[in-house]
Simulated assay, not measured.
Amino acid sequence: MARPSKYSAEFRSGAIALWRASAGRRTYRDVAADLNVTPDTLRTWVRNADDRPVASGASQDSEAGLARLRAENARLAKAGKEWQPEREILRRAAAYFAREMK
């Protein structure tokens, strides 16, 4: 049986958020030194947070939102294709009037 962590879940999530906020600018070693933990500990916390599965309720909500966005994207793409002839007419009219203005 693993021994309980001496760091609270709140501290770990704060450390992960701090590293993610400074990712690219600071190394694990720099952030870990500020928090008085080892770089390997911080790296493990971040890796475990990335591997954590999404809760089923949140997954269903995100799936429903994703399906809604895909449907809206398809609708907008279809609407864009329907307006193609009108846009071509307007483009040609603008070119015609631009030549007459010269």
Rank of each mutant, 00 (worst) to 15 (best):
D51A: 15
A71D: 10
A77I: 03
A98M: 08
P85M: 07
A67P: 00
I89W: 07
R99F: 08
A94W: 13
R91H: 08
S62A: 11
E72V: 04
T27I: 01
A32H: 00
S13W: 05
A74K: 06
R12P: 00
K78N: 05
A71I: 00
Y28A: 06
G24P: 03
A95I: 10
A93L: 14
M1E: 06
F11R: 01
A33H: 03
R20Q: 13
D40Q: 14
D51I: 14
E88G: 04
D30I: 04
I89M: 07
D51V: 14
A17I: 03
F97Y: 15
N36E: 11
A94F: 14
A58K: 11
F97D: 10
R47P: 01
R25D: 12
S5V: 01
S5T: 03
D51F: 12
S5A: 07
R92N: 08
A67N: 05
A21W: 06
R70Q: 11
R68E: 07
M101Q: 15
A71R: 10
R91I: 06
Q84S: 13
E100M: 14
D61S: 10
D50I: 15
T44A: 15
A49E: 09
T38P: 01
R92Y: 01
R12E: 04
L76D: 01
D51P: 02
A94H: 13
A77E: 09
R29H: 07
E86T: 12
R87A: 11
D30N: 05
S59K: 13
A21G: 08
L66S: 14
R29K: 10
A49Y: 13
S5W: 00
V46G: 02
T27V: 03
A9Y: 06
A64I: 13
K81V: 15
D30T: 04
R47V: 13
D61K: 12
V46H: 06
P4V: 04
A23K: 12
V54H: 05
A23C: 05
D61E: 09
V46F: 04
D50G: 08
A95R: 11
R91E: 12
S62N: 07
E82V: 15
P85G: 03
S13Q: 14
P39R: 05
D40S: 15
L76T: 02
Q60N: 12
R43V: 10
A64R: 14
S5G: 00
D51C: 11
D51Q: 13
A33Y: 04
A17Y: 02
R92V: 11
S22T: 13
V37E: 00
K6I: 14
L66T: 13
P53Y: 06
A98K: 15
R43F: 12
Y7L: 03
A95P: 05
E86W: 02
I16W: 01
R75Y: 08
D40P: 05
D61N: 11
S8Y: 01
R43Y: 13
W45K: 02
A15F: 00
L66Q: 12
L66R: 15
R91T: 10
E10L: 08
P39Q: 09
Q84C: 11
R12N: 00
N36V: 08
Y28H: 07
I16D: 02
S62L: 10
L66A: 09
P85R: 05
S59Y: 07
R75Q: 06
G57R: 06
